[in-house]
């Protein structure tokens, strides 16, 4: 995270971005619960998709990845890549079993 953002961007106070992110997260949570009831909660892709959107909001705003250096961004990306490899190999096995 950058130390230059301490009192905001010079234009906006330091609390504005996190507060907007908090509102967005609550909104996404409400949408997820509503869709689970409307669609029966049997489609995991929708629920997980919205959860991933929430995770991105936290990572970008709360964990300040948007202002992090390339090393930290690379590390966060590496985590996603390794998770992706694990899930891809797992699905390649279980989804192709007869």
């Amino acid at each position: 995270m950058s130390r230059k953002r301490d009192k905001g961007d010079g234009h906006s106070p330091f609390w504005r971005g996190p507060l907007l992110a908090w509102g967005a997260l609550l909104l996404l949570l409400a949408v997820n619960v509503a869709l689970a009831y409307l669609l029966g909660g049997d489609n995991p892709l929708i629920g997980v998709g919205i959860a991933v959107a929430m995770v991105l909001v936290v990572a970008i705003i709360f964990m300040d990845l948007r202002r992090s250096g390339p090393i930290n961004r690379s590390l966060a990306g590496a985590g996603l890549v390794w998770l992706g490899i694990m899930f891809a190999l797992m699905f390649a096995d279980y989804l192709t079993r007869s």
């Binding site: 997820n32 009831y37 029966g40 909660g41 049997d42 995991p44 997980v48 919205i50 936290v58």
Partner: peptide, 14 residues
């Protein structure tokens, strides 16, 4: 956030 979706949301509305 991920746990919440896996544990609490399946099987709702039915």
């Amino acid at each position: 956030m991920i746990l919440y979706v896996l544990i609490y949301l399946p099987g709702r509305g039915g």
